[in-house]
């Protein structure tokens, strides 16, 4: 199966391990990823708040480019584009709907695309990698690919807000399950916790740190309390917030919150037995290896 790939800016910078592990895992599953040529900013967060129309125009250009590239060989093709960053995923989904509604502004965007020599017919299907693994590849196939099951590893799946809200394209809005089922397929033990979609602090960590840090702290504290060995995320900002400020959280709230926070694709790669440097494990601030190593041979650190 061939997929187009829209990495977005995060996966080229702070979220590089996400990009690396996605490419590795897709390859391991025999799925082909082709990066969308000449892609641009998705139009997320700041743009959306400042100028909605421009944000939609930016997002729509990416959709138009994807459509052109995906239908180049076969005009009847319905290309699927993989969008791993939760913010990109949401904005592209939003733009898709916005254009389909065909109001006056949608026409303005079409006109803008036309000036750039582009058009968009709405053929592109936007998919999150989690959706692809669980619903297109299937958990049985994933299970069959596992060579090093994550036996005894207690994993708290953290979905964040954007991949399931407001659209709930492939999972439940209030109690999503797909990542937990994936963890099971990898041989790990999902941690049941009620904070799967609670706010990580988002960009507040960079603006009103006091509020942002507290939100991240609540998540890590509860995951730790429930015996999680690792928290996995499907969003580069969530991963960044939860991982990079752990020392500051521990200091402020006078409670150690150190816990590995990885991308879910990194955990998949480990279960598939892929080399660690291909999964970007060396880039994590809180190393994942010790947590996983402790499980090898069926030993459980919290036993």
């Amino acid at each position: 199966m061939d997929y187009l790939y829209y990495p977005g800016c995060s996966l080229k910078s702070t979220g590089r391990p996400y990009d690396e592990s996605i490419r590795a895992v897709f390859q391991a599953l025999g799925l082909n990823l082709t990066e969308v040529e000449d892609w641009n900013c998705c139009g997320a967060t700041a743009y959306m708040a400042v100028n909605e129309l421009k944000a939609y125009a930016l997002a729509s250009r990416n959709l138009a480019l994807s459509e052109r590239q995906g239908t180049a060989n076969d005009p009847k093709a319905r290309p699927e584009v993989v969008v791993p960053c939760a913010a990109c995923y949401l904005v592209l989904c939003k733009a898709q709907r916005y254009l389909a509604e065909s109001n006056g502004n949608a026409q303005k965007i079409r006109d803008a695309l036309k000036v750039g020599g582009l058009k968009y017919k709405g053929k592109v299907k936007i998919r999150h990698p989690l959706d692809i693994f669980v619903n297109a590849v299937g958990l049985d196939t994933i299970k069959a690919r596992v060579t090093k099951p994550l036996q005894g590893l207690r994993v708290a799946s953290y979905y964040g807000c954007q991949i399931i809200r407001p659209y709930a394209t492939f999972d439940d809005q209030t109690n999503p399950q797909s990542m937990d089922r994936l963890v099971e397929a990898l041989g790990g033990e999902p941690v049941d916790w009620p904070l799967k979609t609670r706010c990580c602090g988002g960009s507040l960590t960079g603006t009103i740190e006091e509020v942002g840090l507290r939100l991240s702290y609540i998540l890590l504290r509860e995951a730790k309390k429930r015996g999680a060995d690792v928290v996995i995320t499907a969003c580069p900002l969530c991963q960044f917030n939860l991982e990079c400020y752990q020392d500051r959280m521990s200091q402020r709230f006078e409670e150690p919150v150190e816990l590995p926070v990885a991308f879910f694709t990194q955990l998949m790669g480990m279960a598939f037995g892929l080399p660690e440097n291909e999964l970007g494990l060396q880039r994590l601030f809180v190393p994942l290896r010790p947590a996983v190593a402790a499980q090898e041979g069926g030993q459980h650190v919290h036993a």
């Binding site: 916790w193 009620p194 904070l195 609540i218 509860e222 309390k225």
Partner: peptide
């Protein structure tokens, strides 16, 4: 907003 069991 919610009924939950995460204690602070």
């Amino acid at each position: 907003a919610e009924v939950t069991d995460w204690a602070m």
